[in-house]
């Protein structure tokens, strides 16, 4: 992939030389909005994390106090733990299932359209509604899931109210939402693989599994990296469906970092300093994880 502009663009130098404003005018609207609503606030977020406020209106400078406070806040560490576990579980599950689904869908011919539509359905539903639906479906006594489970004699676990299960439920629902989307991306990657490779493999007597392992997965790697990066970011960002599914409970077991930021910033008692420090920490982590993902992906690609 070429990140830099192609060399041939230089041919336009003649047109560009001097005071030609065209490119600047073209980028201006986008960069103006971008600068005002993303870049500037991003830097200002760092600034904000050195202040505290208990009402979001009046601020007092506290130096690095927010950071020392947050690092000694046991709730924060709980939130970090849930967020990491959630993200790990979600990334692994949605990547593995997404790949399996993409492989199967890609080779399925009859009914493929209808099947894709079914798997894509959750992508279309507002996460808020997803939370409402699953809250009903996972209810211990009146939910669909336990109705089925108890019918086959598996008891009725408290999916949303048992601290040891609720995070798993949230991971499963998160995967349910994104699976179809990732599968579509992976299918586009699968379709870019040269089909003659498979024919050659088949002639050499390779089994289906062998050709998946030796041809598909290595060549699918770049697309897989994209899905992993996407899933990582989505994992760290998860909030909306959790908010209506468990409200972060039971006992905070599914409170993830975004909810922590949101509640500290906007719910009484307001601790704005904690919220902005958590936001900065989240930003650094997301950036680092994405960068490492990307770097590993690129390096293994070049080997």
């Amino acid at each position: 992939m070429s990140v830099m502009a192609p060399a041939r663009a230089r041919g336009f130098r003649g047109w560009m030389r001097g005071k030609n404003l065209a490119p600047y005018l073209f980028v201006l609207p986008n960069m103006l909005i971008f600068g005002v609503f993303t870049i500037w606030p991003a830097f200002n977020g760092f600034n904000l994390s050195f202040y505290d406020s208990s009402n979001g209106r009046t601020y007092r400078p506290v130096g690095t106090g927010n950071y020392t406070n947050i690092l000694s806040d046991s709730q924060f560490w709980g939130v970090v733990q849930h967020t990491v576990l959630f993200t790990l579980g979600f990334v692994v599950l949605s990547t593995v299932l997404g790949t399996a689904l993409a492989l199967m869908l890609n080779s399925q011919r009859r009914g493929r359209g209808a099947l894709s539509a079914a798997y894509f359905l959750p992508v279309l539903i507002s996460p808020v509604v997803v939370g409402i639906i699953w809250k009903a479906a996972l209810d211990r006594t009146t939910g669909l899931v336990n109705q089925v489970l108890s019918a086959i004699g598996l008891g009725s676990p408290g999916w949303l109210v048992d601290s040891s299960l609720s995070l798993i439920s949230v991971i499963l629902v998160g995967t349910w939402i994104h699976l179809g989307f990732y599968a579509v991306i992976l299918i586009s990657g699968l379709q870019a693989i040269d089909t003659s490779l498979y024919e050659a493999a088949r002639m050499d007597g390779a089994s289906v599994w062998q050709s998946v392992r030796l041809i598909t997965l290595p060549l699918l790697r770049p697309t897989l990296m994209v899905v992993i990066i996407l899933a990582t970011i989505a994992g760290f960002q998860a909030f909306d469906f959790v908010y209506t599914l468990t409200g972060g409970g039971p006992v905070g077991a599914t409170t993830l970092i975004i909810q922590y930021i949101y509640e500290n910033a906007f719910s009484y008692p307001i601790q704005y300093g904690l919220a902005s420090a958590a936001a900065v920490i989240l930003f650094v982590v997301v950036f680092a994880v994405t960068f490492i993902n990307y770097a590993i992906g690129r390096r293994s690609e070049s080997i």
Binding site: T38, W40, P41, A42, N44, G45, L48, I233, F236, Q237, F239, I258, I261, Y262, A265, Y272, A275, S276, A279, V280, L282, F283, V286, F287, T290, F291
Partner: peptide
């Protein structure tokens, strides 16, 4: 890589 959520407040 910057989700809106992390710069929500500013």
């Amino acid at each position: 890589m910057i989700p809106l959520q992390v710069i929500l407040l500013p």
